[in-house]
Amino acid sequence: MSVAFHKMHGLGNDFIVIDARAEPVAMSAARAAALADRRTGIGCDQLIVLEPSSAANVRMRIFNADGSEVEACGNASRAVGLLLGGAQRIETLGGTITATATAGGASVDMGPARFGWDEIPLAYAMDTLSMPVGWEELDNPAAVNVGNPHVVFFVPDVDAVDLARLGPMIETDPLFPEKVNVGVASVLGPRHIKLRVWERGAGLTRACGTGACAAAVLAIRRKLVTGPVRVDLPGGPLEIAWQAGGSILMTGPAAFSFAGSFDEDAYPL
Score class of each variant (00 low, 15 high):
A87T: 15
V133C: 04
S130N: 15
V108C: 07
I90C: 13
F115I: 06
R78H: 04
L83A: 08
Y124E: 12
V133T: 10
A55S: 13
D45V: 01
T40R: 15
L129E: 15
I97C: 07
S130V: 12
G94S: 11
N64H: 08
L138I: 08
G167L: 03
M110L: 10
V151Y: 02
T98L: 09
V144I: 09
G74A: 08
I170H: 01
G104A: 07
A101F: 01
A72T: 15
V151L: 04
C44W: 05
L138A: 03
G104T: 07
G94V: 02
R114W: 10
C73W: 11
E171A: 08
V49I: 10
A99C: 06
L35N: 14
H150Q: 14
A36G: 10
F63R: 04
E119T: 14
A142N: 00
G116L: 14
D159T: 14
H150M: 12
V161R: 02
I42K: 07
H150W: 12
V133M: 15
V80Q: 10
A106T: 07
D109C: 11
G95I: 13
L93H: 15
S53M: 10
W135S: 10
P141G: 12
G41E: 11
L166R: 08
N140Q: 11
T96F: 00
N57E: 11
T96M: 07
L129R: 14
I120C: 07
V49H: 01
R39K: 13
V49W: 01
A34W: 02
A34D: 03
L129N: 13
T98H: 05
R39P: 00
A65C: 13
H150E: 14
G105Y: 06
A34V: 03
E91R: 12
V144K: 00
V144H: 03
I170T: 05
L50S: 01
V108Q: 04
P52L: 08
P141T: 14
V161T: 08
T102F: 01
P156E: 13
V144A: 09
S130Q: 14
F115R: 02
V161Q: 04
L47T: 04
I62G: 03
P149Q: 05
V108H: 02
P112D: 06
V146H: 03
T128R: 01
D159H: 15
L47G: 02
T40N: 13
G94K: 04
S77G: 13
V49E: 03
I62Q: 05
G95Y: 12
G105W: 03
D127L: 10
L83Y: 04
G67V: 12
N75I: 05
A32W: 01
G94R: 02
G111A: 08
C44G: 13
A33C: 07
G74C: 11
G134F: 05
E137F: 00
G147A: 10
A76C: 08
D162E: 14
G74Y: 08
V146P: 03
G86W: 09
E136L: 09
I120T: 09
T40Y: 14
L83E: 01
A56G: 12
V155N: 10
F153A: 02
Q46D: 06
W135H: 14
N57K: 07
Q46V: 05
I170R: 00
A103N: 12
G85C: 06
T92C: 08
L47S: 02
D37P: 12
M110D: 08
A36Y: 06
Q46R: 01
F153Q: 03
A123M: 07
P121K: 07
D45S: 04
A101G: 02
M126A: 15
D127K: 12
E137P: 14
R165G: 05
